[in-house]
Amino acid sequence: MTAKSMVLTVAHRLAILAYIVFALFPLFWLLKVSLTPNDLLYSEGVRMWPSRVSFDHFRFVVAHSDFPIFFRNSLIVAGSTAIVVTILASLSGYALSRFAFRAKYWIVALMLLTQMFPLVMLVAPIFKMLSPLGLTNSLTGLVIVYSAFNVPFATFLMQSFFDGIPKDLEEAAKIDGATQFTAFRQIILPLTLPGIAATIGFVFTAAWSELLFALMLISGNDAATFPVGLLSFVSKFSVDFGQMMAAGVLALIPACVFFFLIQRYLVQGLTAGAVKG
């Protein structure tokens, strides 16, 4: 290795390291404060690691607050949304990828348009529509709303994964005696598992984070999701940073775990689509 390429390699690794530090530092700080006992919080406010670590904040959040309920609600909402959206988006993504039909252009345009709305504008009408159906203040209502919001992007994502699978395979299956739908279920879907994982992960994270509609459609604690709970916590106990951050760390875990598992499929799927142009 020449001296010049050595310098370049070191610079490259340092740059990557800088990005990692920038990405992780805020999360590290969240963890640090949540582990700092209350009596050290202010005296050691700027230290990188407290001289004493305590799990009191976590213990309090889990045992003496509504967070376990919020957690459960969020899991149900995000999980159901992810499943519903992935099923719908697989179907519609497959249609966009494999069929040439008249309304295709309009469907794509419609889905792009939905990405452009100020969603705030929809809150009141949606509330008015859901309330006579008894779907406000209910997890089902949230699942329906989140599903609709996430279907367009998930459809594009699934389409790019389907585009990466050769058409020969379906044709072979059709000649082997399968209908288009059988070929879709038995040949194409199993081959799109990475894409399905990526879509599930993406939608789960999005539904897990949603704040606006959760705030507006849910009023009681029973059906509140994590973001709503955390926000109400912030306004109620705005001085107890330790407990808030402990709750924050807990809210972070499922989303991050999911994302960690699927992020490499996300790049793959987008590459497959990009190759096709």
Partner: peptide, 18 residues
């Protein structure tokens, strides 16, 4: 790659609070 992409998984309200 997994580490630098992690912020995207952080819920936005939590990003704001954080």
């Amino acid at each position: 790659q997994a580490l630098v992409f992690l912020p995207w998984a952080v819920p936005t309200f939590l990003t704001g609070l954080n």
